[in-house]
Nucleic acid binder design. Structure first.
Lengths: 160, 160
DNA sequence: ACAGCCATGTAACTTGTTACATGATTTT
DNA sequence: AAAATCATGTAACAAGTTACATGGCTGT
């Protein structure tokens, strides 16, 4: 593919609002080319600008294969909401509940937005549908987690 | 607090393995000072090096308050596992199952590690316990999501 | 005429992170 | 004697991201 084509391909995977910045595609392709993972060649395009069409190299194919089969490490312990809650608990114990409520409201809002979005995804876009489902599952986990905080704050909480 | 003290404070919130790089604390404090959110003053420390003790300014306190009460937007649609699955489905439909299995194994492993870690957290470290619980909830959501993929791949899947 | 799409790319900024440099003290 | 802790900080790299620059074509 050429750069712009790739951008469109990526956009098609994501809901309308989340379009990719084109510049990023070109910087990424530049890096891949420098590393020898892809090769490019100009292909005339009639009236339009010529296209730089990229082809994956053997090296690139190998690295792609490796990347695909390498599991993603997902259990990151750095979490902004956690930081806020831990901090607020130590300095203004009484405000923990507010932070929890604000965050819960936001999360519910997000879930609603994404649910609406999911309903508008064409039935043939299986992947996009699954992506949204995944994000929603995470947000629901967040809600459970906020409830856990709330429970723990009540017992052994504000007075101490 | 002074820089090193802050580092220790942060470390205390996280399990042993996840210690903060000290350098980062100093670069962050430097930026806060430049922005006028904190002020520093040297305090002698007997035999040891003098300490630069930081104090929050009014401006800093205001910005902190804002940050605390601003909800974190959590529903990020960029997901590496999703990218892998979407890509592999389009180029080697038969390999989707392998990617799913690799990722599931990794996720189970992570959950086990974190569960063990959680058991070793002292009972008085409420926050750390909750942090680990949160990460585990997310990983369990990941497992559900991988199952969703598996289901959807079977119906309407490999042959197409 | 103006907006928007097609097509390329570069310069620059932010954030996160690490590796290193220095030097004294305390623990093993 | 070596390793770890206390304490400060800088230089530099990596990744992600955006804003801008250029120019032609297409649809309203």
């Amino acid at each position: 593919m050429h750069g712009y084509e790739l951008k469109r391909s990526l956009d098609a995977l994501l809901p309308r609002a989340q379009a990719v910045n084109v510049g990023q595609v070109y910087t990424a392709l530049g890096k891949l080319e420098k590393d020898g993972d892809v090769e490019a060649e100009f292909v005339p395009n009639g009236e339009h600008s010529d296209r730089r069409v990229y082809t994956i190299t053997d090296r690139g194919r190998g690295r792609l294969e490796q990347w695909l089969m390498l599991p993603v490490q997902r259990g990151d312990l750095r979490d902004e909401v956690f930081l806020k809650l831990a901090l607020v608990r130590r300095t203004r114990t009484d405000a923990v509940h507010s932070v929890l409520t604000v965050q819960r409201t936001e999360t519910l809002q997000q879930i609603q937005n994404l649910t609406l979005l999911a309903q508008r995804v064409p039935a043939d876009q299986l992947e996009t549908e699954l992506l949204l489902q995944g994000v929603i599952l995470h947000l629901e986990a967040d809600l459970h987690w906020l409830d856990l905080w709330e429970d723990r704050m009540e017992s052994g909480g504000p007075k101490r």
